[in-house]
C-alpha cells in the first residue's frame, strides 16, 4: 500500500507492505542507511528515530503506523551543513567509537535535549538506557550530551 508521511521535513510517499518495519523501509526502500539494525527486537536502540518528536525503535514500528506522522532520522538532524549540537559534541568529546550505535544515541539524545536542555548525569543515563554501546563504557557519551552546547553557545563558537 502507499504510505505517506513527512521524512526529515519533506513529504514522502512509499509503496510498502503495511507490516513492513519502518527500519527496513528507511534503509532498503528510501536508502537512508544511517539508521542501523543491531538486534531487531527493540533492545539495542541502534535503529532509533523520532516519530512526532519522540524516540522510537524503528525495528518495532510497522510502517502503516507512521502514515501522516513526522519521522526524523539521523540524516535529518544536521541543518544547512551544520551538525546538530549533540552531533558536534559527540565528535568533540569522544562519544563515537565504532559508530554503529552512534546514530541511535544522537537521535535519543536529541529527544532528551529537546525536552530538557541541561540534563544532569542521571537524567542522561536514564534517557539513553535504551541504547546499547559496547565500545565506550558510556562515560564519554554521557559527557558528550552533558557538554552539548546550547544554541547561543553554539553561535559563539
Amino acid at each position: 500500500m502507499k504510505i505517506q508521511f513527512e521524512l526529515n521535513g519533506a513529504p514522502t510517499a512509499v509503496e510498502a507492505t503495511p507490516m513492513a518495519r519502518l527500519l527496513d523501509v528507511l534503509r532498503e526502500d528510501l536508502r537512508l542507511t544511517g539508521t542501523k539494525e543491531g538486534c531487531g527486537e527493540g533492545e539495542c536502540g541502534a535503529c532509533t528515530v523520532l516519530i512526532d518528536g519522540r524516540a522510537i525503535n524503528s525495528c518495532l514500528v510497522p510502517v502503516v503506523q507512521v502514515r501522516g506522522a513526522k519521522v526524523q532520522t539521523v540524516e535529518g538532524l544536521a541543518r544547512d551543513g551544520r551538525l546538530h549540537p549533540v552531533q558536534q559534541a559527540f565528535v568533540d568529546h569522544g562519544g563515537a567509537q565504532c559508530g554503529i550505535c552512534t546514530p541511535g544515541f544522537v537521535v535519543a539524545a536529541a529527544e532528551l535535549l529537546a525536552r530538557d536542555p541541561q540534563p544532569d548525569a542521571i537524567t542522561i543515563r536514564e534517557a539513553l538506557a535504551g541504547n546499547l554501546c559496547r565500545c565506550t563504557g558510556y562515560q564519554k557519551i554521557i559527557d558528550s550530551v552533558a557538554r552539548t552546547l546550547s544554541g547561543d553557545e553554539e553561535a559563539a563558537r
Binding site: T33, V74, E75, Q87, V91, A96, G99, P103, V106
Partner: peptide, 23 residues
C-alpha cells in the same frame, strides 16, 4: 592532544557505510 577522530562526522551523521549499508 585530544584531536577529534577523522571518522567522527561521518559516524554521527549516519554517512559512514557499514557492510549492511551497501547493496
Amino acid at each position: 592532544r585530544g584531536f577529534v577522530r577523522a571518522d567522527g562526522p561521518a559516524k554521527v551523521t549516519g554517512a559512514a557505510l557499514y557492510v549492511d549499508d551497501v547493496r
